[in-house]
């Protein structure tokens, strides 16, 4: 009984065959699940980036402003629209409650996306392809991205960042 103490010698009770089979199968599954993670870094295309740096929020703010000034091609509402050249370092700045700037990217080109926040935590969720990364103030998270389809993508903030959190939407246009 699970509510009674055990008398010495219980370790010697042999494990039943069916239970041994189950444990073996489960162990193999666990090992496979473990191996898949490092393996995917070799064979897979989507992997969390390992490139990140420490950066003061003010510095990230300045870098984003410089980036916007350099490549600005227009405005949409209150947002600057920016069209950087292929291969460029591009910046996405989270702040309460907006993602700046609107990015215009070319399909099948690779960019180095610098993601950070200048106030509280934000979460970058790209809709509809559903890719999610955390924007942490004090950290420049560098994601190497290659858009593979054209269209308009939304950036939904998916980390609670204050009362207007649900209004924090941004935009990426891939041509």
């Amino acid at each position: 009984m699970s509510v009674q103490s055990l008398q010495p010698g219980w370790w010697k009770t042999p494990v039943h065959k069916e239970e041994r089979i189950w444990i073996t199968v489960a162990l193999i599954w666990c090992i496979l699940m473990t191996l898949i993670m490092p393996l995917w870094h070799v064979v897979g295309e989507h992997n969390p980036s390992a490139e990140y740096y420490r950066i003061a929020p003010e510095d990230f703010d300045k870098l984003t402003d410089e980036f916007i000034d350099k490549y600005k091609v227009g405005v949409e509402g209150d947002f600057a629209v920016v069209e950087p050249p292929a291969g460029a370092d591009i910046f996405l700045r989270g702040s309460q409650w907006q993602w700046d700037p609107v990015l215009k990217l070319k399909v099948n080109e690779t960019y180095r996306l610098h993601l950070s926040s200048i106030d509280v935590l934000h979460g970058m969720s790209i809709y509809p392809i559903n890719l999610n990364f955390e924007a942490v103030p004090g950290y420049d998270y560098v994601l190497t991205i290659t858009p593979t389809s054209t269209g308009t993508f939304n950036i939904i903030c998916n980390e609670f960042c204050g009362i207007s959190h649900h209004n924090m939407m941004g935009k990426i246009i891939v041509q």
């Binding site: 995917w40 897979g44 992997n47 969390p48 559903n130 999610n132 990364f133």
Partner: peptide, 11 residues
Amino acid sequence: TEQVNIIAHNT
């Protein structure tokens, strides 16, 4: 799992 988490995190 690391890679699946990209499409699950905070959703």
